[in-house]
Design a protein around this nucleic acid. Structure first.
Lengths: 338, 338
DNA sequence: TTGTAAGCGTTATCAG
DNA sequence: CTGATAACGCTTACAA
């Protein structure tokens, strides 16, 4: 009772395997041939083996999307956009998780050489020489949703974090907030570094000094909660007495922002009256949390879409010169800012 | 500059392809043979082709996890648990999304016959004859995280929704709430039907009548918001004057609960003072929302883990008799109930 | 239009 | 222990 193969179908239909293959692939054949083959396929319940097919044709019609953390809602936005583009192009999308370590990312990229998929869309959280090298040497097309050095010569679609930061600071300043703090994720990550730099620049543009800054150990809700007290100078009565308590906090992503808001509530501080909070990513969570979160939309959906298009284009023609697309941010104003 | 094959390695090492294969698979070989092969592998940067290998050995060492909606945080809990089990067993996990339609689920299950993976772990949201049939006829092992008829003869791991409902009602009643309403998802889904039944039973056990019930069009945040006013009798002043406004609402999942809480806030109703809210799934969102959400833990992590174990066991031995595991619920009490 | 046969890159069998 | 060689299931020249 094993799976029927194309040979079985051919036998049942009384034709050659080549004819079966042709009919299945819509190549020219007689009316009768098509008829007989299709009947045999029906009867046997034949389904072509993707492994054998891809071994022969050299393509799997699968694309891999690799993200660091499936629990981060920004990736679901991106994932949905990617899925839409690639499935329209006739590819299956499979998602895998890398975790926060760059070595796992490298292993994943290297592993692509095994031929699991025709292309890889990766959104790396940490980037090092090894990763860039592995991407450049990767036999299958790779596009990066994120920032890698231009010299890497790879297609990238990235956000404009500094511009996003500026939007956030502009908004806060316009609302009269000047004691602005920054809750970052790990600074040794790509987004962490970019947002830190952007924050400093944005404040400078307004002639402001950072009121406080803290670095969470991860871009997660829990890490945000843990890092919040340090940022707010809890236990440091002098700081608070000196009015060093921030009147606004910009967070490097929405999960951190929500974690922070919980700590603020626990401290009896009201959002946005006492402290305004701005997130980044404008993920679904920004609408779900309470108060709803003003968040910098870094264009995750568009980045996903553009990255997917880049990947498809590169699969078509691997010799095209790498493109580096930058998606512009916007600000989604909600209730966590005045 | 094409990818090196095992033949290339053999040539470079001056040995046979068979020997290369043996060394690579850790079969007995001389010290020197191992040495030569490994050097050649290094030099050429050879990586074995998974497609060819799986065509030959009949296994891909990949497992597929199919969920309806990547945006539902309950799946990230499950996904993490599954990932842990299967990667420990040497399998890669790939995730695909089915969407809310049963036809897509059926297509996915049928498609497994193409040999993409060695097993499928599916958490179907809607189940019909076709789906059961396709699962039973599927050539690769399938385990269902959810409820399918026993006659289907398939491994399942499911939650005990009625028991979970009872925990929720017990808790609310103990806190003095008696006007309990129910915000369900679509009743034509497996979880929707189970939870509806469970709710009715649980109220009966306490000699209570449902105060109100509504059915959201999806198990999503937005659907929860949209359905909330109807549940609360908004615009129906008589109902509210008659004190028919519920003093507690149980929601079929956490996303719906969070959507409801937003509407409650918009109406000026306080949680839990005016209305207590209980969610189900005890997902990450339950801790992230505000107030934090009391939620029925339906054991999504354990279900994922057990389901993964079942799948691995069935891959080992496809003749074992199907098991039907039921995971018991618990209640995670947080701030949305008194 | 249809059939024959040669691979795709592995692993596994069977001699040596 | 090692080497040739036959599959795995499919597509695709090339021939008929």
């Amino acid at each position: 009772m094993s799976r029927p193969t194309i040979a079985g179908v051919a036998r049942a239909a009384g034709v050659s395997v080549a004819s079966v293959s042709r009919v299945l692939n819509g190549l020219p054949a007689t009316e009768e041939m098509v008829e007989r083959v299709q009947r045999a396929v029906q009867e046997l319940g034949y389904v072509p083996d993707a492994r054998a097919r891809s071994l022969k044709v050299g393509r799997t019609f699968q694309l891999t999307l690799a993200v660091a953390d499936v629990g981060n809602p920004v990736y679901v936005t991106m994932m949905r956009a990617v899925e839409e583009v690639v499935s329209a192009a006739g590819y299956r999308l499979v998602v895998t998780t890398t975790g926060p370590d760059v070595v796992d990312e490298v292993a994943l990229v290297r592993g692509m050489a095994r031929g699991y998929a025709d292309g890889l869309l990766i959104s790396p959280i940490r980037v090092d020489e090894d990763l860039v090298k592995s991407i450049r040497e990767c036999e299958v097309p790779v596009v990066v949703a994120g920032n890698v050095p231009a010299k890497a010569g790879v297609d990238t679609v990235r956000a404009n974090s500094p511009k996003g930061m500026l939007l956030a600071v502009d908004h806060l300043v316009a609302k009269g907030r000047t004691r602005i703090a920054f809750l970052n994720g790990p600074a040794d990550t790509v987004p962490g570094a970019a947002r830190s730099k952007g924050f400093t620049e944005a404040l400078k543009a307004h002639d402001l000094e950072p009121t406080a800054a803290a670095e969470a150990t991860d871009f997660t809700f829990t890490a945000g909660r843990v890092a919040a007290p340090g940022l707010l100078g809890v236990g440091d009565e002098k700081a608070r007495a000196d009015a060093h308590l921030p009147d606004a906090v910009i967070c490097a992503n929405d999960l951190l922002a929500v974690g922070l808001m919980h700590e603020l509530a626990a401290l009896g501080l009201r959002v946005p009256d006492d402290v305004a909070v701005v997130g980044m990513d404008d993920s679904e969570l920004a609408e779900q949390c309470f108060p709803t979160l003003t968040s910098v939309n870094l264009g995750s959906a568009e980045r996903g879409r553009r990255a997917a298009e880049l990947l498809l284009a590169r699969i078509e023609d691997n010799d095209r010169t790498p493109r580096r697309i930058v998606v512009q941010p916007s600000l989604s104003i909600r209730r966590s800012t005045p």
